[in-house]
């Protein structure tokens, strides 16, 4: 398998494909990292929110008649309607994210972290199986939002979907960064993530801030879900499982709790997977877990994570 001749150009081409893949990992990874930042909880249901994000963009298109019954010709969806689908999906995912927090995690705010972690796994299973009941376990096919075209970028070929993914993901990440660093609710998030009790004493509505954190993480996951569905239109209720795990690895690699870390971890993971995929696509899925093991062995705090919290 490794004897396959590969040129350096192919590797660069694959690395570029990896960037668009990694951009989506990054979008999902920020959800893990933000929730961990405020609650020290790994929200294992986050991958399912990503899955729901794709479904919630699928249904408006279906209701509007853009998805034909068996075997019919797929009509092209007008550009403005993409916006409608994405906004609907973002709003629905934000609601789901806040609902999960309110119903599953808030009652356990003072319980042991293990109880919360097991609950997170439970919520994940609930959403996976609930979605199979709601949406059916057979795959749904996402509408065709754009004709696939190749764009020449220097010596490389990229598809227009890949370009869209990279641009949208970059805008979303920059937007998130500005929100967290420059706005008042963003400042509250940073304060809550350091010291919930003191933040409360300062008049910060801690419960509201935590709900907002879930909402924003879920919105990012929903964007990720829609972007992936544009590239790989086959939706299944279990699609969030592997994606969620990989995004979690990206968050750990970047340093859990760090938003720039999640972005970096996502990109590295995406590129590494694609480059390995040059030789073997079967092994590409394993890359994430090899990385996870290496990070945990060598630098458990991740690339941009802090080692422990300094309390003054």
């Amino acid at each position: 398998m490794f004897l396959l001749e590969v040129t350096s150009e192919q590797i660069f081409q694959q690395a570029l494909n990896g960037v668009s893949k990694g951009a989506v990992y990054a979008l999902i990874a920020v959800g893990y990292t933000m929730v961990y930042g405020v609650l020290q909880l790994i929200n294992f249901a986050h991958g399912e929110v990503y899955m729901l994000g794709a479904y919630f963009a699928y249904y408006p298109a279906k209701w509007a008649g853009y998805i034909p019954d068996e075997g019919g010709e797929k009509p092209k969806v007008p550009l403005y309607f993409i916006g409608v689908c994405i906004l609907f999906s973002m709003a629905a995912c934000a609601a789901i994210g806040m609902l999960i927090e309110r119903l599953a995690y808030r009652p356990l705010r003072n319980a042991s972290r293990l109880a919360a972690l097991i609950t997170a796994i439970g919520v994940s299973l609930l959403l996976q199986n609930g979605s199979q009941i709601m949406f059916g376990s057979d795959p749904k096919y996402f509408p065709r939002f754009m004709d696939r075209e190749s764009v020449q970028l220097g010596m490389f070929d990229v598809s227009n979907t890949q370009v869209t993914i990279m641009v949208v993901a970059a805008v979303a990440m920059i937007g998130l960064h500005l929100f967290v660093q420059k706005t008042k609710p963003g400042m509250a998030m940073r304060a809550v993530s350091f010291d919930m009790r003191t933040a409360r004493l300062m008049g910060v509505n801690v419960d509201g801030t935590i709900a907002l954190t879930f909402a924003i993480g879920s919105i990012m996951a929903s964007i990720g879900g829609v972007l992936i569905a544009m590239d790989q239109p086959r939706l299944t209720p279990l699609m969030g499982l592997l994606m969620g795990l990989k995004a979690f690895v990206a968050a750990v690699l970047g340093g859990i709790g760090s938003i720039p870390g999640a972005a970096l971890g996502g990109l590295i993971l995406g590129i590494a997977e694609s480059v390995v995929g040059t030789w073997s696509t079967t092994y590409a899925d394993a890359v994430a877990f090899v990385i996870l093991i290496l990070v945990l062995l060598v630098k458990p705090s991740g690339l941009l994570g802090k080692t422990g919290r300094e309390k003054v």
Binding site: M187, A188, R190, F194, L201, M202, G203, V204
Partner: peptide, 22 residues
């Protein structure tokens, strides 16, 4: 609060502003 409760990850200015959060 006891132990001062300064947010070390926020700037001094942000620490001041969070006092006026409400």
């Amino acid at each position: 609060p006891e132990g001062r409760g300064i947010f070390p990850n926020l700037t001094v200015g942000e620490n001041m502003r969070i006092g006026a959060y409400a």
